[in-house]
C-alpha cells in the first residue's frame, strides 16, 4: 500500500492565492490561515479575538464562502481563492457593504468589523436582496462587544437596496 506524501512538520512550501495574487510561503503545517495572513503576509485586517471559532472576527472568504481563518489550516487553503478584508474593495471604490457600514455607523471599536463586513458582503454576493432575518443569520456567529448589531443589520439591508 502506498503511503501518502507527507509535508512538515517543519516549514514546507505552501502557495496561497490571496486577493488575486499567488503567494509562495514557507509555513509549518500547524500554521492557521489567520496566522499566515497576519504574521507572514502582514494582512492584519483579519482579526483574531477568541481563536477558537466562537466569535467569527477572523472571517475571510474561501472561494467566495465565508469561513473562519482561525479554524482553518493554511495548508488546507492552498488551491482556493482567499479573499480578505484588504481585498474586498476595488481600488478606491469600496464594496457597497463597506460604504453602508460607514454611513450607518456599523462599527464602534472596529475590531469585529472586518469579519462582519466579510460575512455581510458574502451574503449579498449570494443573496442580493436578503431580509433582516437573513442578515441576522449571516452574522449569527459574530460577536461584537460594542453592540453594533442593529447598525450592521441596517447597513447591510441598505447596501442591498443600493445594489442593482
Amino acid at each position: 500500500m502506498t503511503r501518502p506524501e507527507m509535508a512538515g512538520p517543519g516549514k514546507t512550501a505552501i502557495t496561497l492565492a490571496v486577493n488575486g495574487t499567488s503567494r509562495q510561503l514557507e509555513l509549518e503545517p500547524r500554521t492557521t490561515l489567520a496566522e499566515a495572513l497576519r504574521n507572514t503576509l502582514g494582512l492584519t485586517g483579519t482579526k483574531i479575538a477568541c481563536n477558537r471559532g466562537a466569535c467569527s472576527a477572523c472571517t475571510v472568504w474561501l472561494n467566495g464562502q465565508p469561513v473562519l481563518s482561525c479554524m482553518t489550516l493554511a495548508i488546507d487553503a492552498a488551491g482556493q481563492e482567499i479573499t480578505t478584508i484588504e481585498g474586498l474593495a476595488h481600488g478606491e471604490a469600496l464594496h457597497p457593504v463597506q460604504d453602508a457600514f460607514i454611513e450607518h455607523d456599523a462599527m464602534q471599536c472596529g475590531f469585529c468589523t472586518p469579519g462582519m463586513v466579510m460575512s455581510c458582503a458574502a451574503l449579498l454576493e449570494r443573496n442580493p436582496h436578503p431580509d433582516a432575518e437573513a442578515v441576522r443569520d449571516a452574522i449569527a456567529g459574530h460577536y461584537c462587544r460594542c453592540g453594533t448589531y442593529p447598525h450592521v443589520v441596517a447597513a447591510t439591508l441598505a447596501a442591498a437596496e443600493r445594489k442593482p
Binding site: 492584519t44 485586517g45 482579526k47 480578505t84 469600496l94 457600514f101 455607523d105 462599527m107 472596529g110
Partner: peptide, 18 residues
C-alpha cells in the same frame, strides 16, 4: 459618520495586536 470609518471597514486601522 465617523471619519476613520474607511480604515475600519477596510482593515487598515492598526490595533496594538497588529
Amino acid at each position: 459618520p465617523r471619519l476613520n470609518g474607511r480604515d475600519k471597514v477596510t482593515g487598515a486601522t492598526r490595533y496594538t495586536v497588529d
